[in-house]
Amino acid sequence: GSVVKEKKEKALIEVRPYVEYYNELKALVSKISSSVNDLEEAIVVLREEEKKASEPFKTDIRILLDFLES
Score class of each variant (00 low, 15 high):
residue 23 N to Q: 14
residue 3 V to F: 01
residue 53 A to T: 08
residue 26 K to I: 15
residue 55 E to M: 07
residue 60 D to Y: 11
residue 57 F to K: 02
residue 70 S to C: 10
residue 46 L to R: 00
residue 19 V to T: 02
residue 43 I to G: 02
residue 62 R to S: 08
residue 19 V to G: 03
residue 18 Y to P: 13
residue 32 I to S: 03
residue 29 V to C: 10
residue 56 P to I: 04
residue 35 S to R: 11
residue 49 E to P: 00
residue 30 S to W: 06
residue 4 V to S: 10
residue 43 I to Q: 04
residue 54 S to T: 11
residue 40 E to N: 09
residue 22 Y to L: 04
residue 51 K to S: 11
residue 2 S to V: 10
residue 60 D to M: 13
residue 21 Y to A: 10
residue 55 E to C: 07
residue 42 A to F: 15
residue 57 F to Y: 05
residue 25 L to Y: 01
residue 50 E to K: 07
residue 25 L to I: 03
residue 15 V to F: 02
residue 34 S to D: 14
residue 70 S to N: 13
residue 37 N to D: 11
residue 1 G to M: 01
residue 24 E to P: 00
residue 11 A to V: 09
residue 11 A to K: 03
residue 42 A to N: 03
residue 14 E to L: 03
residue 33 S to M: 13
residue 13 I to K: 13
residue 4 V to D: 14
residue 42 A to Q: 09
residue 63 I to F: 06
residue 2 S to H: 10
residue 45 V to F: 08
residue 6 E to C: 14
residue 46 L to N: 00
residue 62 R to D: 02
residue 69 E to Y: 08
residue 13 I to M: 09
residue 43 I to P: 00
residue 20 E to Y: 07
residue 62 R to L: 06
residue 14 E to N: 07
residue 56 P to N: 05
residue 21 Y to T: 02
residue 52 K to T: 06
residue 70 S to A: 11
residue 8 K to A: 15
residue 1 G to I: 13
residue 15 V to G: 02
residue 67 F to H: 07
residue 43 I to D: 01
residue 49 E to M: 03
residue 56 P to R: 09
residue 68 L to C: 12
residue 20 E to L: 07
residue 56 P to V: 04
residue 15 V to D: 06
residue 36 V to Y: 05
residue 45 V to Q: 14
residue 16 R to E: 15
residue 52 K to R: 11
residue 55 E to F: 10
residue 51 K to P: 02
residue 20 E to S: 10
residue 29 V to S: 02
residue 50 E to H: 12
residue 20 E to M: 10
residue 46 L to Y: 01
residue 55 E to A: 05
residue 37 N to P: 09
residue 65 L to I: 12
residue 23 N to I: 13
residue 56 P to A: 06
residue 29 V to Q: 01
residue 46 L to I: 06
residue 67 F to K: 06
residue 33 S to R: 03
residue 36 V to A: 08
residue 7 K to T: 13
residue 64 L to E: 00
residue 26 K to R: 07
residue 67 F to W: 12
residue 65 L to N: 02
residue 2 S to R: 05
residue 48 E to D: 09
residue 18 Y to Q: 15
residue 35 S to E: 14
residue 54 S to E: 13
residue 50 E to A: 12
residue 37 N to T: 09
residue 26 K to T: 12
residue 49 E to Y: 07
residue 43 I to F: 08
residue 26 K to L: 15
residue 68 L to F: 08
residue 20 E to C: 15
residue 15 V to C: 15
residue 15 V to S: 03
residue 65 L to T: 14
residue 59 T to A: 11
residue 63 I to N: 02
residue 15 V to A: 07
residue 22 Y to W: 14
residue 24 E to F: 03
residue 48 E to I: 09
residue 13 I to P: 01
residue 14 E to G: 06
residue 14 E to S: 11
residue 67 F to T: 06
residue 5 K to H: 14
residue 34 S to N: 12
residue 3 V to D: 14
residue 40 E to I: 09
residue 10 K to V: 10
residue 59 T to E: 05
residue 63 I to R: 03
residue 3 V to Y: 00
residue 35 S to L: 10
residue 36 V to T: 12
residue 47 R to T: 07
residue 64 L to I: 04
residue 50 E to L: 08
residue 4 V to A: 12
residue 25 L to Q: 00
residue 16 R to W: 15
residue 62 R to A: 10
residue 1 G to D: 13
residue 31 K to Y: 08
residue 25 L to E: 00
residue 68 L to S: 01
residue 35 S to C: 06
residue 27 A to K: 06
residue 1 G to E: 12
residue 53 A to F: 07
residue 33 S to H: 06
residue 65 L to Y: 02
residue 60 D to G: 06
residue 38 D to N: 12
residue 22 Y to N: 02
residue 32 I to D: 03
residue 14 E to A: 14
residue 62 R to V: 04
residue 1 G to F: 00
residue 68 L to M: 11
residue 42 A to Y: 13
residue 45 V to I: 11
residue 60 D to T: 04
residue 40 E to T: 11
residue 24 E to C: 04
residue 58 K to P: 01
residue 52 K to N: 12
residue 9 E to I: 13
residue 24 E to K: 07
residue 2 S to Y: 00
residue 6 E to D: 14
residue 68 L to K: 00
residue 25 L to N: 00
residue 1 G to T: 12
residue 11 A to L: 11
residue 61 I to E: 00
residue 21 Y to L: 12
residue 17 P to F: 07
residue 46 L to H: 00
residue 15 V to N: 03
residue 36 V to S: 08
residue 52 K to I: 08
residue 67 F to D: 02
residue 53 A to Y: 08
residue 65 L to H: 01
residue 41 E to C: 05
residue 8 K to H: 15
residue 49 E to A: 05
residue 43 I to C: 08
residue 56 P to T: 04
residue 54 S to F: 11
residue 10 K to C: 15
residue 31 K to D: 12
residue 48 E to Q: 11
residue 16 R to V: 11
residue 51 K to F: 10
residue 69 E to I: 10
residue 36 V to G: 05
residue 61 I to F: 01
residue 10 K to R: 13
residue 49 E to G: 02
residue 21 Y to M: 15
residue 52 K to D: 06
residue 48 E to K: 08
residue 61 I to R: 00
residue 7 K to P: 08
residue 7 K to Y: 13
residue 58 K to H: 03
residue 22 Y to S: 03
residue 35 S to N: 11
residue 8 K to M: 15
residue 56 P to H: 05
residue 34 S to A: 12
residue 48 E to L: 09
residue 3 V to W: 00
residue 44 V to K: 12
residue 25 L to F: 01
residue 27 A to I: 09
residue 21 Y to F: 11
residue 68 L to V: 05
residue 8 K to N: 15
residue 66 D to E: 12
residue 25 L to G: 00
residue 35 S to D: 10
residue 35 S to G: 10
residue 63 I to M: 05
residue 17 P to W: 08
residue 68 L to P: 00
residue 59 T to C: 08
residue 51 K to N: 12
residue 50 E to S: 10
residue 45 V to H: 11
residue 59 T to I: 04
residue 13 I to L: 08
residue 66 D to V: 11
residue 41 E to R: 05
residue 46 L to D: 00
residue 65 L to D: 00
residue 23 N to V: 14
residue 2 S to N: 13
residue 20 E to T: 15
residue 44 V to C: 11
residue 38 D to H: 09
residue 4 V to H: 09
residue 48 E to H: 07
residue 37 N to A: 12
residue 62 R to W: 04
residue 18 Y to L: 15
residue 36 V to H: 05
residue 58 K to R: 10
residue 3 V to G: 13
residue 23 N to E: 15
residue 55 E to T: 04
residue 48 E to A: 09
residue 36 V to K: 04
residue 59 T to V: 04
residue 6 E to P: 03
residue 55 E to Y: 11
residue 23 N to K: 06
residue 15 V to I: 13
residue 44 V to E: 12
residue 35 S to M: 13
residue 54 S to K: 12
residue 28 L to W: 02
residue 36 V to D: 06
residue 29 V to R: 00
residue 3 V to C: 15
residue 24 E to S: 03
residue 24 E to H: 03
residue 2 S to P: 07
residue 49 E to H: 07
residue 22 Y to H: 02
residue 69 E to M: 09
residue 65 L to V: 12
residue 9 E to G: 04
residue 46 L to P: 00
residue 27 A to G: 05
residue 58 K to F: 01
residue 38 D to C: 07
residue 57 F to R: 01
residue 28 L to I: 05
residue 33 S to I: 13
residue 57 F to V: 02
residue 68 L to D: 00
residue 21 Y to E: 05
residue 38 D to K: 07
residue 9 E to V: 06
residue 40 E to V: 08
residue 56 P to Q: 05
residue 1 G to P: 12
residue 48 E to N: 09
residue 30 S to F: 08
residue 38 D to T: 14
residue 1 G to Y: 00
residue 23 N to G: 06
residue 44 V to Y: 10
residue 57 F to I: 03
residue 62 R to P: 00
residue 20 E to F: 07
residue 22 Y to M: 03
residue 6 E to W: 01
residue 29 V to G: 01
residue 14 E to D: 08
residue 26 K to F: 12
residue 11 A to Y: 04
residue 5 K to W: 04
residue 4 V to G: 10
residue 67 F to V: 13
residue 47 R to A: 08
residue 54 S to D: 11
residue 22 Y to T: 02
residue 6 E to N: 07
residue 11 A to M: 07
residue 30 S to R: 05
residue 64 L to D: 00
residue 4 V to P: 07
residue 16 R to C: 15
residue 18 Y to A: 14
residue 43 I to T: 05
residue 21 Y to V: 02
residue 21 Y to C: 15
residue 18 Y to I: 15
residue 29 V to D: 01
residue 30 S to K: 06
residue 62 R to M: 08
residue 52 K to V: 08
residue 66 D to K: 10
residue 41 E to T: 08
residue 26 K to P: 01
residue 5 K to T: 12
